[in-house]
Design a protein around this nucleic acid. Structure first.
Lengths: 235, 235
DNA sequence: AGTTCTAAATTGGTTAACCAAATTGGTTGA
DNA sequence: TCAACCAATTTGGTTAACCAATTTAGAACT
């Protein structure tokens, strides 16, 4: 049985190293918005790493909106001044993998917002999809099966209906990790599931009635157990 | 003068196409957690696209925690059941670029939380760094210079102090887009900046006093103008 | 002097050959 | 019968050669 605690992906280390070198270069040359970075080839030579490593690092910084790379043209500094650029990169380098407590805390924050917004902004089509997710969940539970997936799809359906693309994206990014950790820590055992049906239905009804305050309350009830659980984890 | 409205990155289109094909394959073969996906070579052949395209698609799904690729071994289905897998991929394919309104709405939500948490959990070191960011901001404003960058670094310093890695990451991802849009829509003109100094200081003092409720109130005041502005944008 | 055109150099992206780790399947030996 | 071992295959990752779009510099012409 192989235990792979902290492979600490060698790759991540050199990528972070490259990112910090890019930051240093930007500072040293006082590059400003719109300025061009040296070509990938030159950077790989300068930093003595492979070009694909440089590409990965650039892609990461592009994901965070700090660089913009244009085909057959070059990689450019985004419309962010040197101070923010420097601060952002430093923060990015310091980022750690999310712990379960942070995940749950964030999920609760986001979902108390999505139910309110969904209550206010939902279309009839949204409501229909939420209902379908609810039915799928109920059916699984009543059949005695594990319904963790259907549970979360219900919540994602609400997120989709909240009319905020950013929050929706965030919900999508944390959901898989939530599922994994739920399985790992044995949250959501079957005995809870039956209570869950009614709680989900209450939330659904509130959204249907377009009552944001009620919806939020029902969501709070739904999260009560999770909330307590979350704050008792050792980490 | 070239206008590049919606380059609609040809690349994104084929990547989304590949992702949907991967989803279809997973469904067709009823792949479950732990199952292995065909090799990148076979997939590229099967889908009639280049291997690097397949790699990109896999990396995207890996980012969302749906696949796990192990060197010299293969790419595996994450610990998420077929129902959730299917729903998640469908949602991901439907994701659109965030609009300004969503960004601001989300930022306000996150920051009303970060100030509260920062008030409760900040270390002395955190406080020191927030103060430094505040001073840098004040200096710029009093000097009559544009201080958008220092403004946001102050807010990021608070996010860092909130002790929630997930929220911190989210703040980092939306900040560059916020800056870009601020510049574009001319939010935060100089006349506002002077009021901003006092508002920032109030927030800082509340965090220093470790008074989460006060901190949240002060942050609300600070966002008042932004809040109104945000809801008057056409999109 | 200024504009236009063209060809060479530069660019990010793509492809295909290569690598080393890991898996696999069969053989060997007890 | 089964455990141990070894070699062949398969894997994701890496490298380097190649491509086409873009930029550039300067020649050519007005």
């Amino acid at each position: 049985m192989k235990i792979d605690i902290l492979p600490k992906n060698e790759n991540d280390v050199i990528q972070k190293d490259i990112i910090s070198k890019i930051r240093d270069f930007i500072n040293y040359k006082n590059l400003e918005p719109g300025d061009k970075l040296p070509s990938e080839r030159k950077l790989s030579e300068k930093f003595e790493v492979s070009r694909s490593n440089v590409r990965e690092a650039i892609q990461t910084l592009e994901f965070y909106g700090l660089l913009i790379s244009k085909p057959q043209s070059g990689t450019f500094i985004a419309d962010i001044g040197p101070v923010a650029m420097n601060g952002m990169i430093t923060d990015i380098l310091r980022l750690e993998k999310a712990d379960f407590k942070s995940l749950v805390e964030t999920r609760i924050l986001l979902e108390l917002k999505t139910v309110k917004l969904a209550s206010l902004r939902r279309t009839d089509e949204d409501l229909k999809q939420i209902e379908e997710a609810l039915d799928a969940y109920s059916a699984k539970v009543e059949n005695g099966e594990n319904a963790v997936q259907e549970d979360l799809l219900f919540h994602l359906a609400i997120a989709k209906a909240c009319g905020n693309s950013t929050i929706n994206t965030f919900m999508l990014t944390i959901t898989p990790e939530i599922i994994t950790n739920f399985t790992k820590y044995h949250v959501c055992d079957k005995n809870i599931a039956f209570i869950g049906i009614q709680e989900h239905r209450d939330i659904y009804e509130a959204i249907k009635k377009q009552d944001p305050q009620l919806a939020k309350e029902k969501m709070k009830v739904h999260f009560k157990m999770l909330y307590q659980y979350c704050y008792n984890i050792k980490n």
